[in-house]
Design a protein around this nucleic acid. Structure first.
Lengths: 196, 196
DNA sequence: GTCTATAGTTCGATAGAC
DNA sequence: GTCTATCGAACTATAGAC
């Protein structure tokens, strides 16, 4: 933590780590306080509720992520280049904002039932529209196969990329760029050997 | 429910549905009792604890699933045929035992920390060994690309197949065999169009 | 900014009647 | 096999001192 990191952000980071590891519902306010070296009541000097903590973590992260996506989709890359860039941006997010991605993957379904987290639905919709537009453009330009169901292909890509947060740990096994290389190799060309 | 279904199995099915929908920790014994039309105390005539319910659901399912896998791996199919069959068997499991698969996907990480669910670790290990042996055989026979990291390829296949339980609903959109067709098409050959 | 103390709620599980 | 009634523990959040 840098010297300029506020106490609030420091506590938020500790809470995020625990939410990611054990799930939001399964992490108690006392767990967060213990990990922070303070009493549970003291947390309420910084936050109104446990929900506010996870809300701030998710909304801050998602706002930044979609700005990155918008840049890529608005660029002059071809479809393959855009798919490549979006996938790599997603793996980068797993590396740099691991806790936030893990929380979204594990707890978004639970959180979305509350009004406070309605924006998660909106972000899912945007993400879906971005990908289906990209895949649709790819089949029109002839870069992508036209015999695949766009909806299933979207789910395939989405799941494959984000679920990696379950096992990827920064600084272990592979660099995140290597993981992205391999995933894109399979996604674009498959696992069978080609003799041409 | 058939007439021969025991009351215990009936309650187990109701509990499994709720565990799959809301998560194990987030489903209360009172939720299960309400959905069953009885009082929470009455559940303890059939089960010693909430943990026993999820234990029986997972262990019964996994035992059957691994018997199916063993048959496929022990067959005389070539590697591509075995990969095809294992993936299809997994999608069939998502269709026929949706709740059990969903519980495993969402809560296995939490449950594995308890001694009672240590067998989940053993099953994960067996699954990992089955897949890496299969992929290794495929690169030796020349059926599969040799430039991919076997460990990453394993994770790619595993995640892609099982995560479908998050969105697949039996009798909606696509038959499960169609989903398997599309997933295998991408897995084997990728999403780019090939001009030969 | 953190402490102590606790209110108010909900949880898993038990005991005994029917 | 289900009921009523309840225990003891754990939870989120609050109040007020320092």
């Amino acid at each position: 933590m840098s010297a300029s990191t506020s106490r609030r952000d420091e506590l938020l980071g500790i809470a995020g780590r625990l939410f990611a590891q054990r799930g939001f519902k399964n992490t108690t306010v006392r767990d967060i306080a213990d990990a922070s070296g303070i009493q549970s009541g003291s947390l309420y000097h910084h936050f109104d509720s446990k929900e506010e903590m996870v809300d701030e973590l998710l909304s801050t992260f998602q706002t930044a992520l979609f700005a990155t996506y918008d840049d890529i989709v608005g660029s002059d890359l071809d479809v393959r280049g855009k798919v490549d860039a979006v996938v790599r941006a997603s793996f980068d997010a797993i590396e740099q904002h691991h806790d936030e991605v893990a929380i979204f993957q594990n707890d978004a379904g639970y959180l979305m039932q509350f009004d406070r987290f309605g924006y998660l639905r909106g972000h899912n919709k945007r993400f879906h529209e971005m990908w289906t537009a990209l895949l649709d453009e790819g089949t029109r330009t002839g870069e992508l196969r036209s015999d695949l169901d766009p909806e299933l292909t979207y789910r395939f890509i989405r799941d494959t990329v984000w679920v990696a947060v379950r096992w990827y740990r920064p600084g272990r096994d592979h660099a995140v760029s290597e993981v992205a290389d391999q995933y894109l190799a399979i996604l674009f060309d498959g696992i069978t050997s080609k003799e041409s």
